[in-house]
């Protein structure tokens, strides 16, 4: 296969546990040197997908191939091609970091003369050199993550599959982790990295796959995804006081379609709503408010951020939206996305 061919190809991958479908017809492909951000809330099916990729789980149907090797039939080849970091550390008691890496080095049949230099090398990459003589159980969570990365790199795999490498890391350590991942991608590795949080990975991923409830909700570059979601805009209307907030909300609601929801926050004297209406229609709404004698201070569009995008994609259509307690709803059975600071709940 040529260098331009995709390294990871997943087609129609499905995993069922009895009646329950943990993974539903997933198809994606990934090129060499790319970083795929695999994102979704708890129980989305990320770990399930990964376990199938590394040969730990058997898919109910569908296929997955890594560098041409089938994840079910060529399990032995997959072991050499893939470096897998599970969401648990998997340490041994009473072992020092160097001994731990030595064991896995020997397990991957790295000859003794090369092993020492290889261990030094991967500890350097993962920033774990200073821990080499420490006992595993005396390491903090973040330190263990680094050792786990080093272990994953030992046999110089082509594809790295990391299940929540940034989980439990402090902001500084997250930045360092991202730097490590970027360096690996520059070195020609293909990476699949999972996370619960989109912003976490947005800066380093070439491609993002957003999953929820076992289904792929969005796939592509971050820009493409943002564009498809952002056809709806969030508008915030700020009034001088909350005195006439109810009347204003009523008026706005009349201009929107029934499912577009208006929320008001009397404490802030603001009204927020999401709509797919055109600029002209929005101008019309503002004109009506002013004509009704309602004192408007601001009428502006809110930048929809990554969190909003993520939440609006991953939420099931029949799930109720998240809402601030403060905010009372005026009308509309439900909205398509939470508004304002309610989005931070994620």
């Amino acid at each position: 296969m040529g260098p331009a061919d995709p390294v990871v190809v997943i087609e129609g991958l499905t995993k069922r546990y009895g009646e329950f479908t943990a993974l539903d017809d997933l198809s994606i492909s990934l090129n060499r040197g790319q970083i795929l951000g695999f994102i979704g809330p708890n129980g989305a099916g990320k770990t399930t997908t990964i376990k199938i990729l590394v040969g730990q789980l058997r898919p109910t149907s569908g296929t997955a191939r890594i560098a041409g090797a089938d994840c079910v039939r060529d399990a032995a080849k997959i072991k050499w091609l893939v470096g897998y970091m599970p969401d648990t550390f998997g340490g041994y008691e009473n072992m020092r970091v160097r001994e731990y890496l030595d064991f896995f080095g020997a397990a991957y049949k790295i000859a003794r003369p090369q092993r020492q230099s290889r261990i030094d090398e991967v500890m350097e990459i993962a920033g774990a050199t200073y821990m080499r003589d420490r006992y595993l159980e005396s390491l903090s969570h973040g330190m263990k993550q680094r050792v786990a990365i080093a272990r994953t790199l030992l046999h110089d795999p082509e594809v790295l599959i990391l299940d929540e490498p940034a989980n439990g890391l402090d902001p500084q350590a997250r930045i360092e982790m991202r730097a490590i991942l970027l360096r690996l991608a520059e070195a020609g590795k293909t990476l699949i990295v999972t996370s619960h949080i989109l912003p976490e990975l947005s800066r380093i991923c070439d491609t993002v796959a957003i999953m929820s409830h076992g289904r792929l909700r969005a796939f592509g570059t971050l820009k493409e995804i943002m564009q498809t979601v952002s056809q709806q805009r969030s508008i915030e209307v700020q009034l001088v006081s909350a005195n006439r907030i109810a009347a204003a909300a009523e008026l706005i609601q009349q201009q929107l379609s029934a499912h577009e929801e208006v929320t008001r926050s009397p404490a802030e004297a603001t009204i927020r709503f999401r709509t797919a209406q055109s600029e002209e229609q929005l101008a019309q709404i503002l004109a009506l408010l002013i004509a009704a004698g309602i004192p408007v201070v601001q009428f502006r569009e809110l930048q929809s951020d990554l969190e909003d995008t993520f939440l609006s994609i991953t939420r099931e259509p029949d799930e109720p939206p998240l809402a601030d307690e403060e905010e009372s709803r005026t009308a509309g059975p439900r909205s398509d996305a939470p508004v304002g600071n309610a989005a931070e709940v994620g």
Partner: peptide, 22 residues
């Protein structure tokens, strides 16, 4: 003392078992 690397003819799992046991 810093332990040596696992040798070529030994079963790595065996060495690991010894080392991870108190």
């Amino acid at each position: 003392r810093r332990s040596g690397l696992i040798g070529p003819w030994t079963n790595p799992v065996m060495v690991k078992e010894f080392r991870s046991r108190r």
